[in-house]
């Protein structure tokens, strides 16, 4: 092992059975888990959608700022949001928002100590995925009705 670059490495030094030292990976090491499994795939998706939503908050800030700034700035943000790219982004954000919300509820239930057994985990996982699809379509039905 080379010199330590990170204070946390002090607690991550282990030894193999033959005695050679090994630096344990940081959590949650993506390269270790099988990402084709619904459990691990949905776990990292929760993180990814959280990060995506944080970026989406910038769009919200832009929208509010433009509305406060005046008609010209508001027309610009509305032009972008109603463009193909803008609509695609908003549709993606809707799916991201519902996924992170539903998966978040699943996490809160876990935090309360329920639903850890594998059949329940798979069942709630599928429910989150189906719920995301249903709520995203429903939201956009409202958008289309409101727009029309």
């Amino acid at each position: 092992m080379s010199s330590m670059k990170d204070a946390r490495e002090a607690t991550m030094v282990g030894r193999r059975t033959d005695g050679t030292r090994v630096s344990r990976p940081l959590s949650p090491h993506l390269q270790v888990y099988d990402m084709t499994r619904i459990t691990s795939a949905m776990s990292i998706m929760h993180r990814a959608t959280g990060v995506a939503w944080s970026v989406g908050l910038l769009v919200l800030a832009w929208w509010l700022l433009a509305a406060a700034a005046g008609p010209k700035a508001f027309a610009a943000v509305q032009w972008f949001l109603s463009s193909f790219l803008g609509m695609l982004m908003l549709f993606g954000m809707t799916a991201v928002a519902w996924y992170h919300t539903l998966a978040g509820i699943r996490h809160l239930v876990w935090d309360a100590g329920h639903g850890f057994d594998l059949p329940t985990t798979y069942r709630t996982g599928r429910a989150v995925l189906i719920g995301t699809g249903v709520l995203t379509v429903l939201t956009w039905l409202i958008v289309i009705i409101a727009w029309g």
Partner: peptide, 28 residues
């Protein structure tokens, strides 16, 4: 914050969905 955001997100997403295509005055 996640628990507080559950009802707020529901309200926000549905409200903004109905604001689609509305004028500047209506949005304000």
């Amino acid at each position: 914050t996640s628990m507080a955001l559950l009802p707020l997100t529901l309200w926000f997403v549905l409200s903004v969905a109905t604001l689609a295509g509305k004028s500047h005055e209506a949005t304000l």
